[in-house]
């Protein structure tokens, strides 16, 4: 069912080589944002063009691909991206986290721990963790070069002064390998600890912003905090209404007009597997 009109995984080999070079550089300098000549893809910017280009450059015919959005394999954009690679690369796909060799994700890290055999590709809207404190790229590049992250510390402090805690619940900034402050993409901060010392390769692609960055396997990833206000991974204080899990990130679902609601796992594979096993 591969579309023969296109090269394997859509991009031409020169473009893939350019992206692979950027990926190698990104792995060599963990957390550093490597500029790359992002291409215009047949899906819009904001739909995961960066992740799609990283996946296209990393994918092998023997890979088994899983695509999730908000933790689910069946959300519309995950379906669309999976179909794109089925059509242009003809690779096998799966919804099982454990069976996948390459997982492209938007906004979540799977609950099932990843392994050394896996690559996790994140779709990134704004790669620059300092962007909303300093809109100028020329300035944020200087900030990273000098590791001059005081601005971020001040912001986190101001949050505590105003709200009593750090009021960032997703895209919570991390420090990678004791050097670069990095945006983990808009994953809930609940997922942040999974990035630390992770056996899998974690690659981040931002298409519109033309940046690739990476966290190599077994790298120290620390969520920024203060000694007296330590980082806390938080989630809704419920159990999943379907599988009963108490350790997974939950979506809140409104069930009726009267404000009725329930909480279910955002990771559909994790939830289905647990329900199947009757846990």
């Amino acid at each position: 069912m591969t579309d023969q009109a296109y090269n394997f995984a859509y991009l031409d080999e020169d473009t893939k080589r350019m992206i692979r070079r950027a990926i190698l550089k990104a792995i060599a300098v963990p957390g550093y944002q490597v500029p790359f000549a992002s291409r215009e893809m047949p899906m819009p910017y904001g739909w995961g063009t960066g992740g799609v280009q990283v996946t296209a450059a990393t994918l092998l015919p023997t890979d088994r691909l899983k695509v999730i959005d908000q933790g689910a394999d069946d959300t519309t954009n995950a379906v669309s991206i999976r179909k794109f690679f089925q059509r242009t690369a003809g690779v096998a796909t799966t919804e099982r986290t454990a069976e996948a060799t390459l997982i492209q994700t938007r906004h979540r890290i799977p609950e099932t721990p990843l392994t050394e055999e896996q690559i996790l590709v994140y779709q990134v809207p704004i790669p620059e963790p300092m962007r909303f404190l300093e809109p100028r790229e020329t300035e944020t590049r200087r900030i990273h070069a000098l590791a001059d992250y005081g601005l971020m510390q001040v912001r986190l402090y101001e949050d505590i002064a105003r709200h009593g805690e750090i009021a960032t619940s997703y895209a919570y900034p991390v420090e990678v390998a004791c050097r670069y402050v990095m945006d983990p993409s808009p994953i809930p901060k609940f997922d942040n600890p999974k990035m630390n010392d992770c056996p899998a390769i974690q690659l981040f692609g931002a298409g519109r912003e033309q940046r690739i960055y990476a966290v190599p396997p077994y790298t120290r990833v620390v969520s920024l905090d203060f000694d007296d206000h330590p980082f806390r991974a938080s989630k809704a204080s419920h159990d999943c209404a379907i599988c009963g899990a108490s350790d997974s990130y939950l979506d809140e679902v409104i069930t009726d007009d009267a404000g009725g609601r329930m909480f279910v796992c955002s990771d559909t594979d994790y939830c289905a597997a647990r329900a199947e096993r009757g846990e």
């Binding site: 959300t75 954009n77 895209a171 609940f190």
Partner: peptide
């Protein structure tokens, strides 16, 4: 596009 996860974290 869906942002349930981020929104849930904010909620």
């Amino acid at each position: 596009l869906p942002h349930y996860v981020d929104f849930q974290a904010e909620l």
